[in-house]
Amino acid sequence: MEWKHRSLIDLDTWSREEIEYLLENAKNMEDLLDRPIKKVPALRGKLVVNLFYEPSTRTRVSFELAEKFLSADVVNWSVSGSSSVKGETLRDTAWTLESMGADAVVIRHGAVGSAAYLKNKLKRSAVFNGGDGTHAHPTQALLDIYTAWKRLGHLDGKKMTIIGDIQHSRVARSNMIGFKTMGANVVLSGPPTLLPPDLESFGAVYEANPFEAVKEADIVYLLRIQKERQDEGLFPSLDEYFLTYGADERLIKAAAKEALIMHPGPVNRRVEIESAVADGPQSAILAQVRSGVAVRMALLYLCLGGAGKE
C-alpha cells in the first residue's frame, strides 16, 4: 500500500484500508516491545517535538516511548497554563519549532481545532494530534481499535457501547468515527445532558437505559467523568452518576459474555467504573496502554519513516 498521510489531525480522513494497514504495522511494532533491545533505527536523525499545553502523562509518555524506540531525537516542550498567559501565540511557537528543524510536532492543546491550526501554520513539519480540546484524539482511537481488533479478530458488525460524557469527550468522538469506519455499530448511553444533540453524522444511536445499551455488546467503553461537569450542573452528583450509569458487575453481566471492558484512563474508581470491573478478567485497560506505544510507533513510522506524502 502506498501511504499518503504525513500528519494525523482526525480519523475522518482515513479509509478502512488505511486503518487496517496501520494495525498490521502496529502488530510488528508490538512484537518489538518484547525483544530485549527495543530499538530500531527507523527515525534516526529525525526531530520530534512533543508540544503539550495540557498536563498529560500517559499520552505524552506513550508518544515519547514510541519516538525513542524508533530512534528519533525527542524534545518535550511543555507549556503550563494557557498560551495566552505564557504570552506566545501558537503561531509563533509553531514557527519557532519549525526553525529549530522539527520534523514532526505532537500537539496536545485545550482548544478545539488547535492541531489543524498548527498544521496550517507549518510548512514542513508533520503534525500529530495528541488531543485538541473536546474535539479529537485520533491516536487514542487507533490504539482502542487496535486493542479490540486484536482481541476480537475483526470489528465488522461488532457492537461497541460507549457510556459517559460523550459531548465533552475527544476520545468518544474519535472512537465513534474510527470504530464506525471499521464496521462496528456504536451505541451510546449516559445522561442526556452529556450527549451531543446531533448523533446522525456519527452514525451512532442512543439508548437511555445502560442495561439495554450494553446488551450483547462486544465492547463496553467507559469514559472518564470530570468533576467539573457536576459543577456545571450537568448532573447532580458523582454518586448519582455511578448508581445510574457506573459500570459495576451487574451491568457488565448484561453485555456479551466475553465483552471487552475499555477505558482511556485515568480511571475514576466508583464514578464511571468500579474496581471489580476495572481490574477484572474482562478488563483491557492495561492492554490499551501497551497498544498505545505500538500504535504510535506504527503511525510515526508510516508518516515519517515511510513514504508519507500529504
Partner: peptide, 12 residues
Amino acid sequence: WGYSSSRSGLKG
C-alpha cells in the same frame, strides 16, 4: 447547538 457542537464538543 446541533451539528457543529456535536462534531466539535464545543458548547453550543
